[in-house]
Design a protein around this nucleic acid. Structure first.
Lengths: 135, 135, 135, 135
DNA sequence: GTGGTCTAGACCACG
DNA sequence: GTGGTCTAGACCACG
C-alpha cells in the first residue's frame, strides 16, 4: 500500500492516512476483504508512530470503511459494492472542489473571476500532470 | 466591515480574518486610506478573543496590506495601486484552487476524473450563484 | 452444537463460547457425558482460531463443567446433578441482569426510571419472543 | 463534575467518561452551554492521563454532544433541547437493558425464566438502592 | 503476532 | 491556559 505523508501539511498525519485509504478503496486499489498492512508495518514503512496509525485505523473502523478482526488484522469492509465505492470516490472529490468554491464565495469573488480562474488553473494542472503521469 | 467566521473550520480564525480583509481590499470594498475597525471593536463584534484579531492585524501589517498608526487606528495601506490589488486578488484565488487540485492529486484521482468533476461542480456553483447574486 | 459468535461484540470470543456451553448444559441441550465437538472441529465450524476454542475449553475444564480425556475428546462433566445445573443457569442469568443494573446505577439513573424502563423493555421483549418461539 | 472510574472494568476509561458525560447531560446535571472541566483538570481530578480524557472529549465532540472552542475550552452542545435530552437519556438506558435481554436470548433462556429473574433482580436492586439513596 | 489501551511527556497553534 | 497532535514505550487480551 502506497501512502504518502506530507509532514508539513496542516492536515494531521492520521487524517492523511484516512483520506488516502478511503481513496484507495474507492479507486478499487484496495478491494473489500483485502487486508491492510498491520499497524506496526505501516508505522514502520511511513516512519511514524504506532499510535498515529492506530488512530487512523480506529476512525476508519468506526466509519465502517474497514473492519478489525481481533488478533488477525484489519480488512477492507465487505459491505461496499462497486456502485457504493464509485459514489464514495465521487463524494470525496466533490467535497474537495466544493470546499474551494465555498471558500472563494466567502472571500467575495465574482462568478466570472472564479470561472476564469478555475479553467486557467485546471489547464495548468492538466499540463503538469500529463508529464508526470507518463513517467 | 462584514466578516464571517466559521468556528468549526480547520482554518484558524486569525487566518480567516486575514483572508477576508485581503479579499475586501482586493475587491475594492475597502479602499486605500479607509480605516479598519479597532481590534477591540472587531473582537466584540465577532465575539472572539482580542488576541486573535490582534494576530490577524499584525500579520496584515507585516505584509504591508494595512498600516497601524499608534493611537489613531489601523488603515488600508496607501501603497497599493490597482494593478497590485488585482494581482493580490488573483493570487489568493489561485491559491485556493491549486490547493484543491493538489489535494485531489494526493488522493490519486486521475486527470480525467478531476477535469470532469471540476466542470460539473463549477456549473452547479454558477447556477446556484446566479440566483443568489440577483438578490 | 450450535454456537453463534458475534464478532463485533466487546465480549471476547472465548468467553462467548464458554457462556453458551454453560447455557446449553444448564438448559439440558447438552447432558452429562455428552461429547463436545473437538477443538479443531469447532474452530473450523466457527471459522475462528484454534487457540480461541482451546482457551474456552480449558476454562470450562478448570471450572469442572467439562472433562477432557486425552486422546478421546471432551465431555460434559458427570458430576452435575439437576439442582446444580439449575443453580448454574440461574447464576448466569442473574449475572447478566445485575451487570445492567449496576451500569444504570453508574450512569446515575434514578430507581424510578430504571424500574419503569425495565418493565417496558421486558414487555417489549416478551412480545417479540412470543412470535419467534412459535416458529 | 463527578465522574467515577472503575479501573477494573472491561469498559475502557475513555468510554466510561463518555457514557457518564452523556448521562449527565441527559439528566440535566450538565446543561447546554455549560463548560466541562478542562482536559487537564479532569485528568488531574481522576488521576488519569491527559490523553485518556482528550480521547473521550474528542469522541463526544465528534458525536456532537459537546463543542470544542479553540483556546477556550469545551462546552455542552447548544443544539439539544429538553425533549432531545430526555430521549438521549432514555435511549441510553434502553440500550443497556436491551443488551442484557439480547444476551439472555443468545444464551437460550426461556421468556419465563428471564421474566422471573428480571423481577427478582429488580426488586433486590430497588431494595439496595432505597437504603443508599437515603444516605 | 495483532490490535487496544494507557501513561508520560513533548511541542504546537490558538486565544 | 486550552485543546490537538505526535512520539516512545509499556502492558494487555486475544488469537
Amino acid at each position: 500500500m502506497e501512502i504518502r505523508i506530507e509532514s508539513d501539511s496542516r492536515i494531521p498525519i492520521y487524517a492523511q492516512i484516512e483520506d488516502q485509504v478511503r481513496a484507495m478503496i474507492a479507486a478499487g486499489q484496495l478491494r473489500p476483504g483485502n487486508q491492510l498492512p498491520t499497524i506496526r508495518q505501516l508505522a514502520a514503512e511511513l516512519r511514524i508512530n504506532y499510535n498515529t496509525v492506530a488512530h487512523a485505523y480506529m476512525e476508519l473502523d468506526r466509519a465502517g470503511v474497514i473492519t478489525t478482526q481481533r488478533g488477525r488484522g484489519t480488512f477492507v469492509a465487505e459491505l461496499l459494492d462497486k456502485a457504493e465505492m464509485a459514489q464514495l470516490r465521487d463524494r470525496q472529490l466533490c467535497g474537495i472542489l466544493r470546499a474551494s468554491l465555498k471558500e472563494a464565495n466567502r472571500l467575495g469573488y465574482s462568478t466570472d473571476e472564479v470561472a476564469a480562474a478555475f479553467h486557467r488553473e485546471l489547464s495548468r494542472w492538466l499540463r503538469e500532470n500529463e508529464t508526470s503521469e507518463e513517467e
